[in-house]
Simulated scan of single mutants.
Amino acid sequence: MTSRSTSPERTSRIVRRHSLAALDESDWKALSEGNPFVDWRFLNDLEQAGSVGKPAGWIPYPIADEDINGRILSAASAYLKEHSHGEFVFDWAWARAAQGAGLSWYPKLLVASPFSPVTGPRLLGSDRHPQAASRVIEELQRIVLEHGLSSAGINYCTEHDARLLDQAGWLSRYDWQFHWSNRDYGDFDDFLATLRRRARKNIRAERRKVQESGWTFRWVSGQDISARELELATRCYLSTFALYGNRPMLNAEFFRRSAASFSDRFLVCIASHADEDLACAVFWRSESTLYGRYWGSLDDTRDVHFETCYYQGIDYCIRHGLKTFEPGAQGEHKIRRGFLPVKTRSFHFIRHPGMHRAIAQYLKAEDQALMRYREHLETLSPYAE
């Protein structure tokens, strides 16, 4: 696939690339709104470490709308996909339906942050340059039609993106995640005071059990992390995937690069017992948000999981004045620990008219089920008010 230029009278042009390295880092970063998972460094680290690429079934194909001086106005981290792994917006049923109808679902085009179910700008610059972002949408559609792909998807997008995609007629889909919000708490006890008695009692019991068992915790950043601690993060990540029989897409080189790239915005919370590091959780942060991404353990540490992944993160946010904690996808059990449902959005352009109609009908039924689910979630809130 080659780059496509716009007509001469236009004051901008669309370009297609085969690597993020072919696009200007500073322009890209200026449009990423501080979100680490669409940051040029994060996406480039994935490429350079081999976590994405043809062997991984995530073929980089970034698209940008540039002005006449080559400055990026809008862009999308697009990938040609040969499977649906690592997306967290599940379309396996659509793939099976396509196969049953004698159609191919793969390859497809996806705009996403690989392996990262984190809402953020997917049409970079859509807030400042909506016309340029609309041209990127048109280019995504053009690629699907030109190359006979089944579809294009845009996962975990912002409301700015959503408005433009609604206008373009893409199919809308949503789901629920569970996030924690800092209500200007002074400390962890201040947070607990806002909960109902039972929730407060359960959290204190979970934390006390871990403490009395002799576990200790420390945070290290990419700026200070040692080679041994990075090795622990990699081993713990791999252990989780081995436990569930899944293929790990990240590797030691990615974690090494990301720690160096993000410095104090890359964080690892390490759980130790009897002076031995046995478990950890990997986080990234922005100015306002903590993102929990990867957990793993070298021992049976169920209770330590909740402390490392949730309570330590809440404590960190309170100490550092962060407003939001996003601990990852799924997990209704997070509600009783103070995390509440937040809507996530994705959009889909389906080439085949019959598949488009079938998926639209599917999404209509799914929407109704998800609204009923939200009503159920509201009854589980642990907060006293």
Rank of each mutant, 00 (worst) to 15 (best):
G100N: 13
G100M: 13
G100D: 08
A101E: 09
A101I: 08
G102M: 13
G102T: 11
L103V: 06
L103G: 00
W105F: 14
W105E: 04
Y106I: 05
L110H: 05
A112W: 07
A112L: 09
S113K: 07
S113F: 11
S113H: 08
P114R: 02
P114C: 02
F115W: 12
S116G: 01
P117E: 02
T119P: 15
T119M: 11
T119V: 10
G120Y: 04
P121D: 11
P121Q: 13
R122V: 06
L123A: 14
L123P: 12
L123E: 11
L124C: 15
L124F: 15
S126L: 10
D127P: 05
H129S: 08
H129I: 10
H129T: 08
Q131F: 08
A132E: 13
A132P: 12
A133K: 09
A133Q: 09
A133T: 07
A133F: 08
S134L: 04
R135G: 03
V136H: 03
I137V: 11
E138I: 06
E139N: 02
E139C: 02
L140I: 00
Q141A: 07
Q141P: 04
Q141S: 10
Q141V: 07
R142C: 14
R142M: 15
V144R: 04
V144F: 01
V144E: 02
V144W: 01
E146Q: 14
H147G: 02
H147M: 04
L149Y: 03
L149A: 00
G153T: 13
I154L: 06
I154E: 00
I154D: 00
I154R: 02
N155R: 12
Y156E: 05
Y156R: 03
Y156C: 00
C157V: 11
C157D: 04
T158E: 01
T158V: 03
E159H: 07
H160R: 06
D161F: 00
A162H: 09
R163D: 10
L165N: 01
L165W: 00
W170Y: 03
W170S: 06
W170L: 05
L171E: 10
L171M: 12
L171Y: 05
S172M: 01
R173Y: 09
Y174K: 10
Y174E: 12
D175F: 07
W176S: 04
Q177Y: 06
F178H: 09
F178S: 04
F178M: 04
H179R: 10
H179V: 03
W180Y: 14
W180F: 14
W180P: 05
S181F: 15
N182R: 14
R183H: 14
R183C: 13
D184V: 15
D184F: 09
D184S: 14
D184G: 10
G186W: 15
D190C: 01
L192Y: 03
L192G: 02
T194I: 10
T194K: 14
L195K: 12
L195S: 08
L195Y: 08
L195N: 08
R196E: 11
R196W: 07
R198T: 10
R198K: 13
K201L: 13
R204G: 13
R204E: 14
R204C: 13
A205P: 11
E206A: 01
E206P: 02
R207E: 01
R207Q: 06
R208P: 01
R208K: 06
R208A: 12
K209N: 03
V210L: 03
